[in-house]
Design a protein around this nucleic acid. Sequence first.
RNA 1: GGUCGGUUGACCGAGUGGCUAGGUAGCGGUCUGCAAAACCGUGUACGGCGGUUCGAAUCCGCCACCGACCUCCA
Length: 489
Amino acid sequence: MENHLVIYNTLTREKEAFIPLHPPFVGLYVCGPTVYSDAHLGHARPAITFDLLYRYLTHLGYSVRYVRNITDVGHLENDADEGEDKIEKKARIEHLEPMEVVQKYMNTYHRNMDQLNVLPPSIEPRASGHIIEQQEFVKRILNSGYAYEVNGSVYFDVVKYSRNNSYGKLSGRVLEELIAGSRDLEGAEEKRNPFDFALWKKASPDHLMRWPSPWGEGYPGWHLECSTMSVKYLGEVFDIHGGGIDLLFPHHECEIAQSSAAMGKESVRYWMHNNMITINGQKMARSLGNFITLDQLFSGNHPALEKPYSPMTIRFFILQAHYRSTVDFSNDALRAAEKGLQRLFKGMDTLKKLKPSDTSSFDTAELRRKCYESLDDDLNSPVLLSYLFDGVKHINSVNDGSETLTSDDIVSLKELYDTFVYKILGLKEESSAAGSDKLTRELIEMIISLRQAAREKKDWQTSDKIRADLRKAGIILKDTNEGVNWEFE
RNA sequence: GGUCGGUUGACCGAGUGGCUAGGUAGCGGUCUGCAAAACCGUGUACGGCGGUUCGAAUCCGCCACCGACCUCCA
């Protein structure tokens, strides 16, 4: 199987030709969410970025096994390996079982991803479901001599590891500098070094999530789940590991260390990192308190939002920027995305109605070539969209009679847009009337038909009053050649 | 403080050593009973100062500003 895909590998800091280890199979692992609160705009970025990759690789003919985990244990609140488990903390606040918290926010995440038309992964493993495997992984690291046990906890020995390995190779850190720049951590005396990290943590008496282990009752360290589950489902060496750039250090650095220590080799061949979404130039994050949840975005129910934005608007907005760039949130940008997406869909609508000619005045094969070229270049979706918009301009010109297309080219163009817009970019048309109930729709249709009767009698006064009154009720009418369109404001 | 990245027209956002994306908004037009929508046309912008070059916004140096990571975060 052949491809011309080039992807930017964070490990080498270069664009590299993508050559799968075992074609036609591709193994893809992406860090999923820690499910302790509602999914926000930031979660949409990696989900959509790697959904695009998953869809494109599949389109190219690969059988992709896409693994995206759910972190439901072991992700701590505070200082390195100190502080409360995020999920346990939330459980205490909401008076729920930790697994109720997990279930609740996992459900929300799944619903939001579905709204964004993000395909579900092939496997969605949970950390709590792989405790045994994680313990086995810890044993392997202990056997290799790169971990030590203290008081029922097991830590990874970063200093020892870095003697024979390059800790920091992914993130560009130098251990000596990290140590020099670090402060002493209170309560972390168990560690030989502040940069050692927990593989297994002893559970304090009041800790809720706990499992028996050779080292006593405890729970796994956060970094461990990804190393363990990726290897379990994708093999000791696999093709692509993705995630947010904020996970580069320490999370992914620790993953490399764990896998190298346990298996004597690295698991990941291509590391890919999506950049952040910013709001007013600053990262959007739960911890900064400036985040907007996806439900808020879809409903418009947030002080920073001037209106609701549909899931496809969000998806388009994210795809309009390259995944390695930051993208700044604003109402203006969202509104522009909303309009742009409409233009794209209108163009595809027009395409369906084009009248064929004997000749074509522009080269559809060239457009197709450019579309592939853009995605092959490290998933450059903004450039792909620019070509698709160029195509829309041609389509509209054909519709106006200033350009022509043969029937073969029209068929080919339809196929091209279906493939790239629906299948690869994962965009779909949303009807603004879809959210309304049947009764409302029927009542509006009835009012419109009364207005049409008035219009036929050229009773513009009645006609305009109906239009104006509906406008006040938040319903917008548009008279077109094909009849009346309506939508909610 | 260390490491890395960025600074593009009104806004968002690509990209390239010379052929100077795309979207949105604005302006002009077409269409329409009016309105809206739609469509067409229209904008030589790349932080500052030097340097390399026939030519730089694109390469190099310095400066300024912004951000990310260095503690949890997608």
